[in-house]
C-alpha cells in the first residue's frame, strides 16, 4: 500500500511536469504562430495554416506516436528511451501551440481598429502598439478560451501513456493490473479531479484580476 502510493505520487509529479512544461513553451509559441499566421507573407501564413489544420485535425495520440517514432522510421536515428519524455513534451507543445494560436488570432482580430489608429496618431511604433496597447487587451479577451484549453490539457496529460511515460495514469494502470484492485484508478480519478479543480480556480482568479476594466 505504502509503495503503491509512493509510485502514484511519482506519477502525479510526472503529470504535473508535463502540464507545466507544455504551457511554458506552448503559450508563447502560440503567439509566434498566430503572428506568423497573420503575417503578410503568403508563404508563412500558408504554412502556419497547414500546420494548424493538421494539429487540430488529427488525434493527439497519433501525433505523440509520430513525434516519438518519426525520427527512427524517417531518418533511421535511434534516440533511445531517453527520448520518451522529451517526445511527449514536444508533441504536446506543438499541438497546444496550434490551439493557442487560433485563440490568439481570434482575440487579435477582434480588437477594434480605433485602438491601432489612436496609437498610431499618438506616435507609437507598431511594436509599441502591439506590446502595450493591443496585447494586454488580447490577453483579457482570450482568457476564457485559453482556460478551456488548459483544462483539456490536464486530462490530455494521461495520453503520455502511449509512449510508456510513467505519468499518473500509466502507473495506475500497471498497479491495477498487478494487484487486481480498483484503488489506483480511484486514486487517479481523484488526482485528475483535484488537479483540474486547482487549475480552474487559478484561471478564475486570473480572470477576476483582469476585471478591473471592460
Amino acid at each position: 500500500m505504502q509503495s503503491m502510493l509512493l509510485q502514484l505520487a511519482e506519477g502525479m509529479a510526472t503529470s504535473v511536469a508535463i502540464f507545466v512544461l507544455t504551457l511554458l513553451f506552448s503559450l508563447p509559441l502560440g503567439m509566434l504562430v498566430a503572428l506568423a499566421r497573420m503575417s503578410k507573407s503568403r508563404l508563412l501564413s500558408g504554412l502556419m495554416r497547414i500546420y494548424i489544420s493538421i494539429m487540430r485535425g488529427t488525434p493527439l495520440m497519433l501525433q505523440l506516436l509520430v513525434v516519438f517514432f518519426g525520427p527512427y522510421y524517417l531518418l533511421r536515428v535511434n534516440l533511445g528511451s531517453g527520448y520518451r519524455f522529451p517526445a511527449v513534451i514536444l508533441a504536446f507543445v506543438i499541438n497546444y501551440a496550434a490551439y493557442f494560436a487560433e485563440s490568439y488570432r481570434g482575440g487579435i482580430a477582434s480588437m477594434p481598429r480605433g485602438q491601432y489608429e489612436a496609437a498610431q496618431v499618438l506616435g507609437y511604433s507598431r511594436a509599441q502598439t502591439f506590446a502595450h496597447i493591443i496585447l494586454p487587451q488580447v490577453v483579457k479577451r482570450v482568457l476564457p478560451s485559453v482556460t478551456n484549453e488548459v483544462i483539456t490539457l490536464v486530462k490530455d496529460t494521461s495520453l503520455a501513456f502511449v509512449l510508456s511515460v510513467t505519468e499518473m495514469f500509466t502507473i495506475a494502470k500497471a498497479i491495477a493490473a498487478a494487484e487486481k484492485t480498483m484503488i489506483p484508478y480511484l486514486a487517479a480519478g481523484i488526482f485528475y479531479y483535484v488537479f483540474n479543480f486547482v487549475v480552474a480556480m487559478l484561471m478564475e482568479r486570473l480572470e477576476h484580476r483582469l476585471n478591473y476594466y471592460r
Binding site: Q115, E117, L122, Q137
Partner: peptide, 17 residues
C-alpha cells in the same frame, strides 16, 4: 511629422486598460 497633429475620434478610442 505625427508630432504636429492630434486627432479626436468620434468614438473616443481611449485605451480601456
Amino acid at each position: 511629422l505625427r508630432r504636429n497633429f492630434g486627432l479626436v475620434f468620434q468614438s473616443f478610442n481611449l485605451f480601456p486598460h
